[in-house]
């Protein structure tokens, strides 16, 4: 049978009840949330039963104002046969950003999770090689978190001298 956003939502609610929530349709893609403890169960269900066998994208988002759910991990999954996508969000507190790794289901999650760890400090439990990927290993902060400042465009300490033209 063909899947639509409505049937996907029905099947998810039938299987997980109130463990999946916040359904919405942004720009045609069904978005929903699940608790961090359930993420693998939900993804496995989407993979096995609904045919979402392709992990398009995995990234982090930091909402500093959402107390207790500051870090959000977003999965974009794609069902190639039915050509439909879903977006799953997992929110975790910044004090304990623990999420189970999806790298056992999708090989591609490996580096995308490393990237998310690198920029947001999400601790992917069970990840085979959770270390920084794009930034230097010595870095001791997570630069895409909102607390890490953007460069002040009016700064004056970056004068020519620093670039050897003084």
């Amino acid at each position: 049978m063909s899947l639509t956003n409505t049937t996907i939502q029905e099947k998810l609610v039938e299987k997980f009840g109130d463990q999946v929530f916040q359904f919405s349709t942004d720009s045609g893609i069904l978005s929903f949330e699940a608790p961090a403890a359930q993420n693998l169960k939900v993804i496995q269900f989407l993979y096995d039963d609904l045919g979402f066998t392709f992990l398009t994208d995995l990234c982090g988002v930091n909402y500093p104002d959402q107390t207790g759910a500051e870090i959000v991990v977003v999965y974009h999954l794609h069902n190639f046969v039915q050509n439909i996508r879903v977006r799953l969000s997992i929110a975790v507190p910044v004090t304990q950003p623990d999420v189970f790794t999806a790298s056992k289901i999708f090989e591609s999650a490996n580096w995308m999770e490393r990237e998310t760890y690198d920029f947001f400090g999400v601790n992917f439990i069970g990840h085979p090689n959770l270390k920084r990927i794009l930034n230097v290993d010595e870095m001791d902060y997570f630069p895409l978190r909102k607390e890490f400042p953007l460069e002040d465009q009016t700064r004056i300490d970056k004068d020519d001298e620093m670039f050897g033209r003084g």
């Binding site: 942004d26 720009s27 990234c59 974009h76």
Partner: peptide, 20 residues
């Protein structure tokens, strides 16, 4: 306000932009 995931077929594959 809102979010969008939009992709094009780049030279190497699906080049996606996830904008919030």
């Amino acid at each position: 306000k809102g979010q969008i995931y939009s992709a094009v077929e780049g030279g190497n594959g699906e080049l996606g932009f996830y904008l919030i």
